[in-house]
Design a protein around this nucleic acid. Structure first.
Lengths: 104, 104
DNA sequence: GCGACTCATAATCGCTAGGTCATGGGTTCA
DNA sequence: TGAACCCATGACCTAGCGATTATGAGTCGC
């Protein structure tokens, strides 16, 4: 049932999310995906970074559960995981009174 | 007045905030300070880390403008900077439709 | 099956981050 | 003034991060 590790697990997940968000390139990728889902190639085209570098960044975002990937033929399509985004926001910032005012 | 660098500055500031939040110890420190302001010594007492290490973490949080310090006699008191916390939350997560529902 | 295309992974490198101990600077009090 | 206290900073070490090039693994069309 995973009760004992439930809370620490939540914390670790939050830390993973913030680590993922702590890089400017990954923030940009999320913004890009907010527009619409995109293939890896399309994402690479928006940066002056190599394809493997972007691939690593995508792996970090995926590990944090911030994005979801889906193979479609030759391509791999990435899209936002809306659930994790809003859950992380509420989960962390909801702990602070000053933020609760801005949350519903 | 810092207008020209306002937007890139905002992004850099957000990245600094998330870098600060990407460490479990610093997250804990913020939670502690949400309870109430505390001296460095009191904060150190809540962790099994050396005083210099905590001092460094506090410096990172201060550099991100997430906390404010104030000398009081021998002690230095740290407290949350509520403004930065909520502004960062709104500034970043407000970019995503899935989060706008949770924001007011 | 073979080449071409798309993406992920391995190996490597330089830099940053987080930890330590030792020390310095500011403040209080006798 | 000087001892004691509180905190920050310097010097150092190790581990992890972000970047690269080179290569491997799926998938499609011929």
């Amino acid at each position: 049932m995973q009760i004992a590790t439930a809370l620490p697990g939540r914390k670790r997940q939050l830390t993973k999310v913030f680590k993922a968000l702590s890089d400017g390139t990954r923030q940009e990728i999320l913004r890009l995906l907010e527009g619409s889902q995109r293939t890896v190639g399309e994402i690479v085209g928006n940066f002056s970074l190599s394809q493997p570098t972007i691939s690593r960044h995508l792996a970090v975002l995926k590990e944090a559960d911030l994005v979801v990937d889906q193979r479609q033929g030759q391509n791999v399509i990435y899209r936002l995981n809306d659930e994790t985004l809003s859950a992380s926001m509420r989960g962390f910032f909801g702990q602070f009174r000053s933020c609760q005012h801005s949350l519903r």
